[in-house]
Amino acid sequence: MDITKKVVLIGKFGVGKTSLVQRFVHQKFSDEYLTTIGVKIDKKIVEINGKKLSMLIWDIAGESSHQKIPSSYKLGAQGIFYVFDLTRPSTFGDMSVELNELENILSGVPIKIVGNKKDLISPESFDALRKQLSPNILYCSAKTGENVEKAFYELGTEMLA
């Protein structure tokens, strides 16, 4: 029997939430930018520690502020990806405030912080940025697939704990 869990991707517009989902669910990547309107829901069943986990993945439209996202989209979330763009500091400048808001709304729900678009940043810039940011961030590239599976499996493991 599958265990079903709702996963929500939250982040500002253009950070690559949809691309991460497409890479994970369909093993695809497109350079075309398509704005998500409202929410897009995908499903993928994975096996973690001998258990089948059905992930209902809610890709929520990016907003300039997380307060603009309808709270009904977040209700029932059992796992959260907070996604930002490594090439755009404006997408992670107020990360700590936004993470605190999420933790207040969804207390106890595992949150995985994902820095996306690692393929677009130079190794020197990446090293400098990594020193400034939290050590708990998983750095990904939806384009190359780097750490995308790992991010979803890590969150899945935390949700099943």
Rank of each mutant, 00 (worst) to 15 (best):
Arg88Cys: 13
Asn136Cys: 01
His66Arg: 14
Ser65Arg: 13
Phe92Ala: 02
Ile80Pro: 00
Asp119Glu: 12
Pro123Trp: 00
Ala61Tyr: 04
Ile60Pro: 13
Glu101Pro: 03
Gly50Arg: 11
Phe84Trp: 04
Ser90Asp: 15
Asp127Trp: 04
Ser134Tyr: 00
Leu129Met: 13
Lys44Asp: 09
Ala128Val: 13
Ile48Met: 02
Phe126Ile: 01
Glu98Ser: 04
Leu102Ala: 09
Ser71Cys: 02
Ile105His: 06
Lys51Ala: 11
Gly79Thr: 08
Leu99Gly: 02
Lys74Ser: 07
Gly62Met: 13
Ser54Val: 02
Ser72Ala: 10
Gly115Lys: 00
Ala61Gln: 15
Leu102Phe: 11
Gly62Thr: 10
Trp58Lys: 07
Ala77Gln: 12
Gln132Tyr: 03
Lys112Leu: 12
Leu138Ala: 04
Ala61Phe: 06
Lys117Phe: 09
Leu86Pro: 07
Leu120Ser: 12
Asn100Pro: 00
Leu106Glu: 07
Pro70Phe: 10
Asp119Phe: 11
Ser134Pro: 05
Leu99Glu: 09
Asn136Met: 04
His66Gly: 15
Ile60Thr: 14
Val46Met: 09
Asp85Leu: 13
Leu102Gly: 07
Lys117Thr: 14
Lys131Gly: 02
Ile60Asn: 11
Tyr82Met: 10
Asp42His: 06
Lys68Gln: 14
Val109Thr: 11
Thr87Arg: 00
Lys74Asp: 06
Lys44Phe: 01
Gly76Ile: 11
Ser72Asp: 02
Asp59His: 03
Thr87Val: 15
Val46Thr: 06
Gly79Cys: 05
Ile113Asp: 01
Ser64Cys: 11
Glu63Gln: 15
Phe126Ala: 12
Pro110Ser: 12
Lys43Met: 05
Leu129His: 08
Glu47Cys: 07
Ser96Ile: 04
Val83Lys: 13
Val83Tyr: 04
Thr87Gln: 01
Asn49Ser: 15
Ser125His: 12
Lys112Gly: 06
Gln78Lys: 08
Asp94Lys: 08
Gly62Tyr: 14
Thr87Asp: 04
Met55Thr: 14
Lys118Asp: 05
Asn49Val: 09
Glu101Asp: 14
Leu106Arg: 01
Phe84Asn: 05
Leu106Trp: 02
Ile69Met: 14
Asn116Ala: 10
Tyr139Phe: 15
Ile113His: 01
Phe126Val: 05
Asp85Arg: 06
Leu56Gly: 09
Gln78Arg: 11
Ser107Cys: 05
Ile137Glu: 01
Lys40Arg: 10
Ile45Arg: 14
Phe92Pro: 00
Asn116Gln: 09
Phe126Gln: 12
Leu133Gly: 08
Pro89Leu: 07
Pro123His: 07
Gln78Tyr: 00
His66Asp: 08
Lys51Met: 10
Asn136Ile: 04
Asn104Pro: 00
Met55Glu: 05
Asp85Glu: 15
Lys44Ile: 07
His66Gln: 03
Ile41Gln: 06
Lys117Ile: 09
Ile137Val: 12
Asp127Leu: 13
Ser96His: 15
Ser134Ile: 00
Phe92Asn: 05
